[in-house]
Structure formats: structure tokens, C-alpha cells
Nucleic acid binder design. Structure first.
Length: 197
DNA sequence: CCCGTGATTTAT
DNA sequence: TAAATCACGGGG
């Protein structure tokens, strides 16, 4: 039996790196939909202009981002997309890691059924809103405790990848964030075909 | 390149 | 209350 990933009470950059290669698991009607995490981004809280918690902002939407590390923060954007974050640190920190891409490993048939536009396996989970659509993740899972939930969790299936296998670049879609847009807070598995864009 | 789509945020 | 924004995806 794989062990659950539970080490969420740390800084988001370390957690972002150690999440790469681990397995995101979604269970619907007793059926598992799984993928290896291959791309993530760290959001660093009140100081980070690109974070939803920038300047200590607390709203209805982002309140779960202030929960203790290990909870899910699921938000809705562009009128049709959901994105999944893993909250890090301690209660009130407002720091998180956005899951941006998975390499699908279980339940591909069902993922294709949920993503009508996907033609190949690399179309299923190669973006933050693609992976939530493929795995059936929406606002009803906002605030889920990933350490205890049977519906959404992360399995630790390997040690943290060596730095030589991880690329670090600027985050996607945060050009408005001034100096914070330049920070290399996006991490992905080098050469993996399921990474976005 | 552009557009859909609507909740959330920010400006008046 | 009104206007602008948006951690995106799909199509041309």
C-alpha cells in the first residue's frame, strides 16, 4: 500500500519540489482516477503579488487558502475553469502550490469521457484546468483535507526527485505581478510530455 | 491571433 | 452599482 503524502507544514517551494513525481488520486464512485504530478507552481502569500492572498486579502473565494497545510484550495476562474492548489505551511499563512499538470496513470478511459476535446493522453491533464476537468474536481472539494479524505489525496510513491531532473522557470499567466512575475517558482519534470504548453 | 464565460475584485 | 479582471482552454 502506498503511503500518503502528509508533509505539508513546510515552505511551499520545498513542497512544490517534493510533490513532483508523487501521485494525485481522485476517487469517484469507488473508481480511482490517478496521475503523476509533473508540473507545479508555488504561491508565497501576502508578499507575493501573484498570489490570491497578496497583501493579506481574505475573501469568500480564497478563505481555504488560509487553512493549515494539507487542505485543498479549489477556485473557479474565467467563467468555466477550476484549479486545484495544495495549501502549505500553518493556518493563516496563505501559501500554496498550484497543481498544473499530471501524467495520467489510472482511469484514462473515464478521463477521456470527462474531457470531450482531448484526443491524446497528453491532452488530458496538461494544464491546471484540464486536470481538474479530467479528475472531476470542482468547488465542492474546496477545503478538503488531503491528509484524511477518501475522495481526494496524494500518495507518496517516491523520494523527492534530484534537482537535476527538475526545471525551474517563471510562473505562467502572472505577467501583471511585477518583480514577482520574474521569480522562478514554476517547477516541472524535465522532458515530460505531459507538462503544459 | 481571438474569443467564451461568469464569479470575483476593484473602481466609482 | 458598474466596470474590469482573470494562476485558462480551444479554435483558426
Amino acid at each position: 500500500m502506498p503511503r500518503r503524502f502528509t508533509a505539508f507544514s513546510r515552505d511551499p517551494v520545498s513542497i512544490a519540489r517534493s510533490l513532483l513525481g508523487q501521485r494525485l488520486v481522485r476517487v469517484i464512485d469507488g473508481q480511482r482516477l490517478c496521475g503523476r504530478i509533473v508540473e507545479v507552481e508555488a504561491y508565497l502569500g501576502a508578499a507575493d503579488r501573484a498570489a490570491h492572498t497578496f497583501n493579506g486579502r481574505r475573501t469568500k473565494r480564497n478563505q481555504s487558502m488560509y487553512l493549515p497545510g494539507g487542505h485543498a484550495y479549489v477556485y473557479f476562474t474565467y467563467g468555466m475553469h477550476y484549479c486545484l492548489n495544495v495549501v502549505c505551511g500553518s493556518a493563516g499563512d496563505g501559501v500554496a502550490v498550484l497543481l498544473r499538470a499530471l501524467e495520467p496513470t489510472e482511469g484514462l478511459e473515464r478521463m477521456f469521457a470527462r474531457r470531450r476535446t482531448a484526443r491524446r493522453a497528453t491532452d488530458l491533464c496538461s494544464g491546471p484546468a484540464k486536470l481538474t476537468q479530467a479528475l472531476g474536481i470542482d468547488r465542492s472539494l474546496d477545503g478538503t483535507d488531503l491528509r484524511t479524505s477518501e475522495a481526494l489525496l496524494i500518495e507518496r510513491v517516491r523520494l523527492t526527485l534530484p534537482r537535476s531532473r527538475i526545471a525551474a522557470t517563471k510562473r505562467v499567466g502572472v505577467g501583471y505581478a511585477g518583480a514577482w512575475a520574474a521569480r522562478r517558482l514554476r517547477f516541472f519534470v524535465k522532458g515530460n510530455p505531459h507538462v503544459s504548453r
